[in-house]
């Protein structure tokens, strides 16, 4: 539906992304409500957050249609703090 490979970007794709973001956020909320913790759960929740950020960058910001340097900054921004946060939680656990 998202057709990332063909770089087709439309309202319908963004609408699917929107609902996906809502669902992932609700799963994150449930993890918090159930009091689930530990390294694995934290990294899974972080992975969901990074995936959501990636989708916002690609589809809402329209970076899926940008090639070259400007395609990458948001993805790189997500990866670097994501790795640092993962390391910090790994060391803390």
């Amino acid at each position: 539906m998202f057709m990332y490979g063909k770089h087709i970007l439309g309202i319908r794709a963004c609408t699917w992304v929107y609902f996906f973001l809502l669902v992932l956020s609700f799963i994150t909320y449930l993890v918090g409500q159930l009091g689930l913790g530990g390294l694995e759960v934290s990294l899974l929740v972080l992975f969901f957050a990074l995936m959501k950020g990636h989708l916002v960058g690609l589809y809402f910001m329209g970076l899926v249609r940008v090639k070259g340097f400007w395609h990458w900054p948001v993805s790189i921004w997500l990866i670097i703090p994501g790795v640092l946060i993962s390391i910090a939680f790994y060391l803390a656990n």
Binding site: H7, I11, R12, Y59, G62, V64, V66
Partner: peptide, 14 residues
């Protein structure tokens, strides 16, 4: 339903 978001075609810039 077919309107494009962001750039209208492949672009070097956002």
């Amino acid at each position: 339903t077919t309107a494009t978001i962001g750039c209208s075609s492949q672009s070097k810039y956002p």
